[in-house]
Design a protein around this nucleic acid. Structure first.
Lengths: 155, 155
DNA sequence: GTTGATTACTTGCAACCGAAACTAATGTAG
DNA sequence: CTACATTAGTTTCGGTTGCAAGTAATCAAC
């Protein structure tokens, strides 16, 4: 291996900050949604993606991609959302291996109710603290780090 | 509330990228350490912090702060590290509420063995993809977002 | 068409986590 | 001193997760 064994001081300082952020930011958002709406961030994202889809439904594997989760994890997240009445699951008639998750009216109402608080939390934690230039920098850096894995929005 | 209800398009794009990164980066590092060293990222960070301390020990509450974890989580992480022989726990004689975690020789060897692979993963996921200017930007943004919560290094 | 590989999704298991309850030591007010 | 509050850490409980194994449908080769 030709890489240096450890990070240089500049990189090390940057990494300690990034790592802290990577642990704390998700926890902050998670606890806001849990406390105020009894939703997980993953569950919120599933509802958000479905609610923004024109057809209000999406196959499981696509949904897993959009929400950055494994298939097995998504399967359980959707099972819980279904139990809570926010989502239904149905087989695709064309390919009966495929399961289509569809958001219910109750699910639409839930995401509409949850969104303002979640957005406020995101603003408070991120966008209120950065200027426009920094937002652009952060977006550029994030997309660079995601590389080809950047997920696509529902059509 | 005076905030706009949702994010503007620029912010929305930035947030989708940041959120994806926030989910994927920890998972990447977690699976590398799990696969190659049978360590969690949290366990690695505990060993790393202890190994860098002059005294090779640290009280639990301080360690929780340094590693961005709750006390209850840290308690279990250290219990597992102790079971694996990488750490010992002892009461502080001055204040018998306090528990001092100390890294063992085996723990020092473990972190030395695990570090190169972990650092390589961090490099591959982050620093190899950014130029110096972006590293500075990312560090500045992260520290701004952490605000006063920025953790201090062991003395 | 039958066999074998692949794809889509689900589930069993062991480990992990946050929140709250718990134990125990220390600090403080009278 | 003696309550009462506070601090440090652990543990219990319900729920979540990743991995690997399992089910079922489709595809590909012959």
């Amino acid at each position: 291996m030709t890489e240096p064994q450890w990070l240089n001081p500049e990189e090390r300082k940057a990494w300690l900050a990034v790592a802290s952020l990577m642990f704390r930011l998700p926890a902050t958002l998670e606890s806001q949604l849990q406390r105020d709406e009894d939703l997980t961030v993953a569950g919120y994202m599933v509802l958000a993606m479905l609610s923004e889809s024109a057809t209000r439904e999406c196959r499981m594997s696509k949904l897993a991609e959009l929400t950055n989760t494994s298939q097995s994890r998504l399967s359980r997240i959707v099972a819980r959302l279904e139990k809570d009445g926010y989502v239904t699951r149905a087989m695709d008639a064309n390919d009966r291996r495929v399961v289509l998750a569809r958001i219910t009216e109750s699910g639409m109402a839930k995401i509409a109710a949850a969104a303002p608080g979640h957005v406020a939390a995101v603003r408070a934690a991120v966008f209120d603290r950065l200027d426009e230039e920094q937002v652009r920098q952060l977006a550029a850096i994030s997309r660079t780090l995601l590389g080809d894995d950047f997920p696509h929005l529902p059509e």
